[in-house]
Design a protein around this nucleic acid. Structure first.
Length: 689
DNA sequence: AGCGAGGAC
C-alpha cells in the first residue's frame, strides 16, 4: 500500500524538476490531498471520541481505509503523546513496519526517527523524540520483558490482528493483563520501569476480518468501530465442476485469460517451489505450440527460498506487448504486493504446517484455503484497477471452506511462547487467558520439554539463571540451551555460528536445472560429520574471504563482494546475511551475560559431543533396513535428501528437524557415537544402557 | 534413491 505510493511520488519529483521550495510545497499539497481523500479522514472526530470513551476499541476496516497511517496521527493531534508518551503500532511483518513508518514520517514532514520511527530486529530508527512508533509485534513482546507494564505507551495499536500470528495472540492476552494492572495502579501512586509515572493504557485492535465478534467477545463486549475500505471491484469466477487436477486447470485458465482478456498481469497462487517450477516449464512448453503473435506471455516464479535477484524480477514491468504471469506461493497473499496484477488464479489450496506435540513432529500438508484466504487472494487483483479472480473450484465448495485459518498458536510448538510467558511472570499457563487456547497436551508437552532443557524447575518455575538466560536470547529454547552448554564445553564460538545458521532457512540454493552443478561446486564445504559442521565451514569460509578483502571499507562494497561469493558457491546470500546478523546479535547477548566466547579450534570431537549433549532429545538410530528410529518418539524416519549425510547413513545421528512431507524426514544432522547419549544426558537416557 | 508454505525476536 504505502510502498507503491512512495515510489510514484519519487517518480513525479524527477519528472517535474522545480525549485526545491516549489517542489516541496507541491509535495506537501499532494500529501494533504491524499490524506483528505482517505475514507477514514472524515471519521477523525468520531474516532478520537470513541478512543476517549473506550479503553478497548476494535477497529474493522478493509484494505485502503487509511487506518494504519492516519489513526496514529489523529491520536498525536488529540494529545495522546503528551508528557513524552508514545503511541505504539504493531505489525506482523518487518517490511510493513518499515514502509508505513517511512510513509507517515513523510506525511508529517519529519525526518524518520524524530516524531515518527520504527523498531524491528537489527534495525531501530527511534530516538527520544519518537512519539509514533511502528514495530513488529515480536519487538513489542521483547520490550515487555524489560518493562512489563509497557509504561512508555499511552496507546497500543495491534494492526492486522485477524492474521492471528503467535506473536499477535500472545500480545492480545498480555495487553489485556497489562491494561488491567495499569488501571489498578491508577493515579500514578506506583511507578513503573525507570520511575515513570504509570497511567491507564488505551488498547486498539485493528482487523480486516469481517468478523470482529471474536475480538469484541474476548475483551468483554468491547466496542467495534467500522471504517470503510477502498479497493477496486474484483469480479469473482468459479468453475462449474470440481477439478481433479488444479495444476492442469491453472494452466488452462492462464492461457484462456491470455487469449481472451484485456491486458494486465496474472497472479497464480500455487503451493510450493517444485510445483511452481514445474508450472513455469509447462507454460514455456505450451507457448512453443502457439502462433508467434500469441507467445507474448512471460512466466515468473516467486517463493521465499528464491534468491533476491530473481524475486526482484516479478516487480519489473513486462516487456512491451508482453503479459506477466507470476507463479507464487502465499508469499504474494500478504508479504509482497506486485504492481500491475489484474487477474488472479486461485488453486484453492495452500501448504500449511501443523505440529503434533506427542510425536514432536511437524507436518507440511497441502490443505484447502479458508474463505478469508480465498477473499484475500482475490483482492490482489484489485490493487491498481478493477480486476477478475478465477477460483479453480465450484462456488458451492467455497461455501464449505473454513471461515478463517486456524490461529497459529494452535498449530505450533509452544516451548518458546511458554518460556516467554514464564519470563513475563505468568506462571499459570494452563489457566492463562488466551483468545484461542492451545490444547492441554500441547502445553503440558512444552512444559515438559522446557523442564528437560533445564529452563524450568521441578515445580515449573523459571530456573535461575539458566531459564532467565534462555528467555533473554532471541532463539528457540533448545538453541539457547546449546549455547549455555557450549560455554561449558569451550566451543561457544562454534555453537554461536551453528545456531545462527540453523535459525535461518534455505542456506543452500538448489535450482532444479543446476542441481548437480550446485552440489559439486560446494563439495569443499561438506563435512563427513554432517550438516552442522558443513554450515560452520560455509560461514567461516565467507568470513575468511571477507577478512582478506578488509581493505574495502564501505558496507555496500562488502555486501557486493559477499553476494558474488554466495552466487559462485550456490549459497543464498539473503539467508547468509541474516545468519551473520543473528550471530552478531546473540554473540552480544551472551557476552552481556558474562560468557567468555571461547573456541575449540579444530577439536571437532568435543564440538560433536556438545551437539549430542544439547540436542539429546533429537537423536535417531539406524535400523537393519536402513531407515532410522527417532529415539524420543519412536517414529520411523528417513534422512532428507538435502542432508550431506543422505548417502552415508551413519549409525546414530542428532537431527535438528523432524518434518513430515512426502515422508517423515529428519534434516540438518550430525553423526554421533550412540554411547554419548547415556553419558551426556544420563537423566534422560540412563535406562537405555 | 530423491526434496520444505509464510512470518518473527
Amino acid at each position: 500500500m504505502a510502498q507503491g505510493e512512495l515510489k510514484s511520488s519519487v517518480l513525479n519529483r524527477k519528472r517535474n524538476p522545480k525549485s526545491p521550495v516549489a517542489s516541496r510545497s507541491s509535495k506537501r499539497q499532494k500529501i494533504a490531498e491524499h490524506r483528505k481523500s482517505l475514507p477514514i479522514a472524515s471519521e477523525e472526530e468520531r474516532l478520537i471520541e470513541a478512543v476517549q470513551k473506550n479503553d478497548i476499541l476494535i477497529i474493522v476496516g478493509e484494505t485502503g481505509s487509511g487506518k494504519t497511517t492516519q489513526l496514529p496521527q489523529f491520536l498525536f493531534n488529540a494529545g495522546f503523546c503528551r508528557e513524552g508518551k508514545m503511541v505504539g503500532i504493531t505489525q506482523p511483518r518487518r517490511i510493513a513496519a518499515l514502509t508505513i513508518a517511512k510513509r507517515v514520517a513523510e506525511e508529517c514532514d519529519v525526518r524518520l526517527g524524530q516524531k515518527v520511527g520504527y523498531s524491528v530486529r537489527f534495525d531501530d530508527t527511534t530516538s527520544s523524540s519518537t512519539r509514533l512508533k511502528y514495530m513488529t509485534d515480536g519487538f513489542l513482546l521483547r520490550e515487555a520483558l524489560v518493562d512489563r507494564l509497557l509504561s512508555r505507551y499511552s496507546v497500543i495499536i495491534i494492526d492486522e490482528a485477524h492474521e492471528r500470528t503467535v506473536h499477535t495472540d500472545v500480545l492480545l492476552a498480555l495487553l489485556k493483563k497489562v491494561q488491567r494492572e495499569r488501571s489498578e495502579i491508577g493515579g500514578g501512586v506506583l511507578r513503573g520501569c525507570q520511575g515513570r509515572k504509570v497511567s491507564p493504557l488505551k488498547l486498539i485492535i485493528m482487523s480486516a476480518s469481517l468478523d470482529a465478534r471474536v475480538f469484541c467477545d474476548y475483551y468483554g463486549g468491547a466496542k467495534d468501530f467500522r471504517v470503510e475500505g477502498r479497493q477496486f471491484d474484483v469480479d469473482i469466477f468459479y468453475t462449474v465442476h470440481p477439478e481433479t487436477d488444479y495444476v492442469d486447470a491453472a494452466l488452462n485458465t492462464i492461457f484462456q485469460i491470455h487469449s481472451e482478456e484485456e491486458e494486465g498481469d496474472i497472479l497464480v497462487f500455487l503451493t510450493g517451489q517444485e510445483e511452481i517450477e514445474s508450472v513455469e516449464r509447462l507454460v514455456q512448453e505450451k507457448l512453443k505450440h502457439l502462433p508467434e503473435d500469441e507467445r507474448k506471455l512471460l512466466p515468473l516464479a516467486i517463493f521465499s527460498a528464491l534468491p533476491s535477484e530473481q524475486q526482484m524480477r516479478v516487480f519489473a514491468p513486462a516487456p512491451i506487448g508482453f503479459r506477466k504471469v507470476v507463479l507464487a506461493t502465499n508469499i504474494a497473499e500478504t508479504s509482497i504486493t506486485i504492481p500491475g496484477i489484474r487477474y488472479v488464479v486461485d488453486s484453492g489450496v495452500v501448504k500449511a504446517r501443523t505440529y503434533d506435540p506427542n510425536k514432536g513432529m511437524e507436518t507440511l500438508d497441502v490443505v484447502p484455503v479458508s474463505k478469508a484466504q480465498a477473499i484475500q487472494r482475490s483482492g490482489r487483483a484489485g490493487r491498481d484497477g478493477y480486476g477478475k479472480s478465477f477460483h479453480l473450484y465450484p462456488e458451492r465448495d467455497f461455501w464449505k471452506l473454513e471461515d478463517s485459518t486456524k490461529p497459529e498458536i494452535k498449530r505450533c510448538n509452544l516451548s518458546n511462547v511458554i518460556l516467554q510467558l514464564k519470563a513475563l511472570g505468568i506462571d499459570d499457563i494452563l489457566g492463562f487467558d488466551f483468545i484461542d487456547k492451545p490444547s492441554r497436551s500441547a502445553i503440558v508437552k512444552a512444559l515438559a520439554e522446557l523442564h528437560l532443557l533445564g529452563a524450568l524447575t521441578d515445580d515449573c518455575k523459571l530456573a535461575k539463571p539458566a531459564g532467565e538466560q534462555m528467555a533473554r536470547l532471541p532463539l528457540e529454547p533448545v538453541y539457547s540451551r546449546a549455547l549455555i552448554l557450549a560455554n561449558q564445553f569451550n566451543c561457544l564460538e562454534e555453537m554461536l555460528i551453528i545456531v545462527a545458521m540453523l535459525s535461518v532457512e534455505s542456506i543452500f540454493y538448489d535450482p532444479r536445472q543446476k542441481r548437480e552443478e550446485a552440489r559439486t561446486s560446494r563439495n569443499h564445504f561438506v563435512s563427513v560429520e554432517g550438516d552442522h559442521l558443513t554450515y560452520l565451514s560455509v560461514y567461516r569460509e565467507l568470513d575468511e574471504f571477507l577478512e582478506e578483502r578488509k581493505a574495502e571499507k564501505s558496507e555496500a562494497k562488502v555486501e557486493k563482494i559477499m553476494r558474488k561469493w554466495c552466487k559462485v558457491n550456490f549459497v543464498n546470500s539473503r539467508s547468509l546475511k541474516h545468519a551473520r546478523d543473528i550471530y552478531r546479535q546473540i554473540r552480544g547477548n551472551v557476552e552481556q551475560m558474562g560468557f567468555n566466547v571461547s573456541s575449540c579450534g579444530n577439536d571437532m570431537l568435543e564440538y560433536r559431543r556438545c551437539i549430542a549433549a544439547s540436542f539429546f532429545l533429537k537423536a535417531a538410530q539406524r535400523q537393519m533396513d536402513g531407515t532410522y528410529r527417532a529415539l524420543e518418539s519412536g517414529e520411523i524416519v528417513h534422512i532428507h535428501p538435502s542432508s550431506v549425510l543422505f548417502r552415508s547413513k551413519p549409525e546414530c545421528v542428532i537431527f535438528d528437524e523432524l518434518m513430515q512431507t512426502s515422508q517423515k524426514y529428519i534434516n540438518n544432522l550430525t553423526r554421533i557415537d550412540p554411547l554419548w547419549l547415556a553419558e551426556l544426558a544420563p537423566h534422560h537416557y540412563k535406562t537405555e544402557e
